[in-house]
């Protein structure tokens, strides 16, 4: 067992101290409520605009705090590493960003996140009279979806959804319209991930699972949880097929369908490898007759220092592309503004 090598002080202070850094680095865009561990858009609440609140465990940076700002989220609640935030945080955020048009919760499908956001929505409606709707993302094809499981995990689509729905909120769409749009985006996106290494939760101090040097985990989530399958290490083109094939098999992406193709790093893989993977993904999509209308390559929804990547494909139409291209100004995504 190797010692944990991390740039931290006390494992118990990691989230608190990272939030201090986020505030110091991005004070033009965000302010941080350190007591509730919520990152707010600097000018929230915006009168008449639906507030977008997301959140989840920490350790996935830049998600979600790095997606707070113009054209994306109004607030992001930070839980402990890989642990859902608590209802108090979500309630504080919900009340704070309500500009009179209601609040949309964007929740990744994990039991803890769903339960805590549910409690928060019930309490916010009862206590403060804020109208809250929720969308739960569940795009991970690695998980068999059935009545007998917690269902598919919310992964890469969450990033694309926060951008697209954020732009639509900026246009002044209603809470109901945004919830409908968010549901449609989630339904049209699929993801699949793999890991070359495990990761170490600071408070645990040792890697979540052991992975021999010559093997990889396929079908992982974003919490260092083991995947569905352990396979011998393979060349990038074979790994790309392992990720793309189940996605294509799950959604009927047809000939000529445009997609946003997103190759995401898990935190410990360099960009040179992510771009190499993106090229492999493009070749597979080309063979399948799918058009890459837009692309995103980089570390956006990570799992601490885990090496590996995920692929997300989102089927788009002109409206979604226009919303994708709209200005965004956050620490994690910025263009046109």
């Amino acid at each position: 067992m190797c010692l944990m090598k991390k740039l931290i002080n006390d494992p118990a202070d990691v989230v608190k101290e990272a939030l201090l850094g986020i505030e110091a680095a991005h004070q033009d865009r965000v302010r941080v409520d350190h007591e509730n561990k919520v990152v707010y858009r600097v000018d929230a609440p915006r009168a008449g605009k639906v507030g977008l609140v997301s959140g989840g465990g920490s350790g996935h940076e830049p998600m979600h705090g790095g997606f707070v700002g113009l054209g994306m989220l109004d607030a992001a609640c930070a839980g402990e590493v890989f642990t859902s935030p608590v209802p108090d945080q979500m309630m504080a955020a919900t009340k704070e960003v309500d500009g009179g048009a209601g609040v949309l919760h964007i929740v990744k499908n994990y039991t803890g996140d769903v339960l805590n956001f549910e409690m928060a929505a019930e309490l916010a409606a009862a206590e403060a009279g804020v109208e809250v709707l929720s969308v739960v993302t569940d795009d991970d094809v690695a998980v068999q979806d059935s009545l007998y499981t917690a269902g598919r995990r919310g992964v890469g689509v969450t990033v694309l959804l926060e951008k697209i729905v954020g732009a639509a909120a900026e246009e002044g769409r209603s809470l109901g319209e945004l919830a409908e749009l968010a549901t449609a985006v989630n339904r049209q996106g699929r993801s699949m991930g793999m890991a070359l290494t495990s990761c170490t939760v600071p408070s645990a101090g040792s890697p979540t699972f052991d992975l021999p040097d010559d093997e990889m985990e396929v079908g992982i989530g974003i919490h260092g949880e083991p995947g569905r399958q352990r396979l011998p290490l393979a060349p990038a083109k074979d790994v790309a097929a392992l990720l793309v094939d189940p996605i294509l098999g799950d959604l009927p992406y047809g000939n000529g369908d445009p997609v946003i193709a997103f190759v995401n790093g898990m935190g410990g893989t360099p960009l040179i490898e992510l771009y190499l993977m993106f090229n492999e993904v493009c070749q597979l999509l080309d063979k399948a007759g799918i058009t890459v209308a837009r692309s995103l390559v980089g570390n956006y929804i990570t799992s601490l220092e885990m090496a590996g990547c995920s692929v997300t494909l989102l089927k788009v139409d002109d409206d979604l592309l226009r919303l994708w291209d709209a200005p965004v100004n956050t620490a994690g995504l910025r263009w046109g503004a």
């Binding site: 839980g79 402990e80 859902s84 608590v86 803890g112 339960l115 805590n116």
Partner: peptide
């Protein structure tokens, strides 16, 4: 517990 645990265990 609800306010401090997080995850699924807090609400449960």
């Amino acid at each position: 517990m609800v306010s401090t645990v997080g995850g699924a265990s807090g609400p449960l």
